[in-house]
Amino acid sequence: MNTADLQTPLKRVRGLGSAKSGTHHFIVQRITAVALIPLVLWSIWLALMLLHADYVAAQALLQQPLNAVLMIAFVLALFWHAQLGLQVVIEDYVHTRWREITLQVAVKFLCVLGALACALAVVRIALGK
């Protein structure tokens, strides 16, 4: 028996909106935003530390376990938050359906690739060669 059949159409759609996902996007956008507040402040400190660091000094800085973990957390939150934000911009301004879908998928792919590449780079730096 399909339980969905027992719900009225109003019950099914209530609170889900046109995207059919309710407040999920809104909530994840805020959670990544809250995570990014301390991570961005830390990344500004790191950037200032890297100013006059040559290759060896820069590697040593990112090899510290705390910095490596925070950098991976930073890039994950960054690309997740970027995808959610760009999604809304595309939804608002791109009105040709095939263009919108193409852009949305491209942005998702690029953000996942960016996060994976950055995370792998940090692991490589942290573990040495």
Partner: peptide
């Protein structure tokens, strides 16, 4: 600024990948 920062994430990527790749890319 959100869109500009999304583009700026390329710079974060470039720096981390260069640092993982070796001294010459990093420089």
């Amino acid at each position: 600024t959100g869109v500009a920062l999304a583009v700026g994430s390329i710079m974060v990527c470039a720096l981390l990948l260069a640092l993982a790749a070796g001294p010459y890319p990093y420089e």
